Computed example of a mutant assay.
Amino acid sequence: MQVKKNPEVEVGRNSSLYFAVGLNLMLLITYMMFEHKTYESDITARDIVQVDDMIEADIPIVNLDVPPPPPPPPPALVPDDIKVVEDQVEIEETIIESSEIGQNDAIEEYVADVEDVDVEEVDEDIEVPFAVIENVPVFPGCEGGTRQQQIDCFQAKMMEHVNKNFNYPERALELEMHGKVYVLFVIDKTGRVTKIRSRGPDKLLEKEAERIISLLPKMTPGKQRGRAVNMPYSIPIHFKFRQQ
């Protein structure tokens, strides 16, 4: 005959649960032991702050030697002989008459004669181009002849003067500078060359071209309607060198 056991009173039915709870408790206790920190008692220092009673000291008042303020200025002296001047001046009124002309004012008729008009001649510096001037400036040696002959002689003498006084700058030769320089100038109403300007590839060439034109002789000035006038003129000077 087998003995029947009551399952409610069996001891080992919850053994696995007890084992798991016990294991977790041991792990928790072990972790807390590893994390626990201890300190040696002889290393710990304790500071005690002592606060003494505040001492109230009386600050002595020091009197500095301050100079006394300066005395007030003496009162102004009033002279005994005071003259009272009356400032009432009689002013005469000046009547200013209007200079405007009214309807009732008569206008005197006056006819001016031609002889009474003074014509002032204004000397203007008029510049007449070479192409339209009536009488071109006369270069020395070009006197006489027609207008076209004087023009041809003027241009020929101008080229002869440039070729005669031409001098190639040494610095320009070393740098192999070349090109055409346009020189603009004015032959004024006295026949002299003024207002010389130039435009070229370099300042060295421009300076030499202006020097050549400044050596032009005095001429007979150009005329327009019988009066001497200024005439602008331009000439190209070609700087060209030959390589050996």
Rank of each mutant, 00 (worst) to 15 (best):
D125L: 11
G141C: 03
Q103W: 02
E210T: 08
A76N: 04
V62A: 07
E100Q: 10
D80M: 06
I48C: 02
R227F: 09
M54I: 11
P140H: 06
I95Y: 13
P68K: 15
E92L: 10
Y168I: 05
H36P: 00
F34A: 03
D80H: 09
P74T: 08
D123Y: 08
Q149C: 01
E93A: 12
G179P: 02
A228P: 06
M1R: 09
G22N: 03
L175R: 06
Y39M: 08
T146Y: 00
V229C: 10
C142R: 06
H238S: 11
M1F: 09
D47S: 10
E176R: 01
T38S: 08
F19G: 15
R171F: 01
D118T: 13
K180R: 14
F19E: 11
C142Q: 12
S234G: 14
N24A: 10
E35S: 14
Y182R: 15
Q50Y: 12
A106W: 00
E143Q: 14
I43R: 05
V78E: 11
V119H: 14
P70V: 12
D113T: 15
V9F: 12
E170F: 07
I237S: 13
L25K: 02
G102F: 05
N167R: 04
V51M: 11
A112G: 10
V51F: 14
K195Q: 15
S234E: 14
V85C: 06
V114G: 08
P75K: 14
E100R: 08
R197I: 01
I235S: 05
E206Y: 02
I237F: 13
M158C: 04
L64C: 01
V111E: 12
F130P: 00
M1P: 03
P217N: 14
P7H: 11
I91K: 04
K203W: 03
F19S: 12
E160W: 03
P140C: 04
M219A: 11
L23A: 13
N63P: 04
E124I: 07
V122E: 15
Y31K: 05
P73H: 09
P7S: 12
D125H: 09
D118P: 00
D87A: 03
P217W: 12
L64T: 01
K203D: 06
D80P: 03
